[in-house]
Design a protein around this nucleic acid. Structure first.
Lengths: 218, 218
DNA sequence: GGGGCCATCCCCCTTAAGTTGGAGGACGCG
DNA sequence: CGCGTCCTCCAACTTAAGGGGGATGGCCCC
């Protein structure tokens, strides 16, 4: 953002930590600490006033915590936030990432790695501590599909038209609405719905709709 | 897994790439290449036969591709898979991660970083190339909640019983099933359903069910 | 050119869903 | 206590859903 020097705002409730980071970052050469904040509310205010490139944010702070502060800064299209915390608790990690943090590091990080991380975040990249990357990947892999099963085996048996109907079912449409959408008669829709129910192994349009959504047809 | 030496299987359809990786990994000292595979199907078979600690998997391969091979290896509780690819296309990245890959690197990676990545994956950590970490974080932040809105305004108006019913609706249950579940009469269920439809602004149990799922009531 | 698959439509029937309008009992609160 | 809210239930009605047949025409492939 600012050419060669990266402007950083430090947010941590412990004065000693701020002082330590201040000294440490001063050794980097291409990093300039432009401000400090002792809590989340101050961090948000300082970010708006100082327009830093990166905010080094502690997760645990009195009042408005780091996660909430991150959410506000990101919502305001502000600086990139690098969350720096002592604990890799799921709650904090995922809270921070959902809040839109650009990076997540543990305070056990080596100085060189911290510098690298700040530079990467400033460049628009993301950074996640190796120790927590695994948690993130696991969550990522787990989120979309519950497990090894869950694949639409029936998908191969459904005719194109039936698939259309199943999608419409997933959208909560009535037979009449489906008939209108595809310009066919109500009787035809019923035929297709019956086929879909049989092939998907469901016994009501409700369950079929849930199936359709579960497998991502909607 | 194997004490001090990390056993690696290389899967890539280009013989020259395999040869290059073989030479490169030989320089690491603590890494031993125990096998090679030219396509996904072979990779899965080799993994089962050789039981490596880490599989270096190319994403693009003829026949069974790297993503599908990864899915099969992970489903079988096999080795950790480190995906190595030329392109950081969303499709490949998210496909690999959803398949359960433990890491994702670009082929532009520096040898030292590749060694480090292999060691981390072998240690059970996750690794994601800095260039793609940002994509992952963005997806992560976007996935859970569509946006600032989407909160159930009507949730405050729903009585406890009505909420029960809405949840049941979201599970695709019929009025009769709901009556049985809560040990009330069918008539009562109908009353509650009507109230729920009115308060949620929906006009059919289908739409109410979708609403219930959308706001996370199920 | 005959068979199979698909999409379309029809009739009849049973059951579920949803509406309307009411009514009684339990509980809490001023 | 009186009032309001909630939960419970009922009856009667209209509409939608779903099953069980059966029929037609188009299309593709052997």
């Amino acid at each position: 953002m600012s050419g060669t020097v990266i402007r950083v705002l430090i947010a941590d409730d412990h004065a000693s930590v701020r002082a330590g980071l201040l000294l440490l970052l001063g050794m980097a050469g291409d990093i300039e600490v432009v401000g400090e904040a002792a809590d989340g509310a101050l961090a948000v205010a300082q970010e708006r006033a100082l327009r830093p490139d990166v905010v080094l944010m502690d997760a645990r702070m009195p009042g408005v915590d780091g996660v909430e502060a991150t959410r506000r800064i990101v919502a305001n299209a502000g600086a990139d936030v690098l969350m720096l915390t002592t604990f890799d608790l799921d709650e904090i990690v995922f809270g921070a990432l959902k809040a839109g943090a650009a990076g997540f590091l543990l305070k056990t990080v080596e100085p060189q790695d911290l510098f690298t991380a700040i530079r990467r975040v400033a460049a628009g990249d993301g950074v996640v501590a190796p120790e927590v990357t695994r948690q993130v990947l696991r969550r990522f892999a787990a989120a979309p599909e519950p497990g090894p099963e869950a694949r639409p085996a029936y998908a191969h048996d459904l005719t194109p038209r039936e698939t259309d109907v199943l999608v419409a079912l997933g959208q909560g449409k009535s037979n009449a609405q489906i008939a209108q959408e595809f310009v066919i008669s109500l009787a035809t829709v019923k035929s297709h719905v019956s086929s879909v129910l049989a092939k998907t192994g469901t016994s009501s349009r409700m369950q079929a709709a849930i199936e359709a959504r579960r497998v991502g047809l909607v």
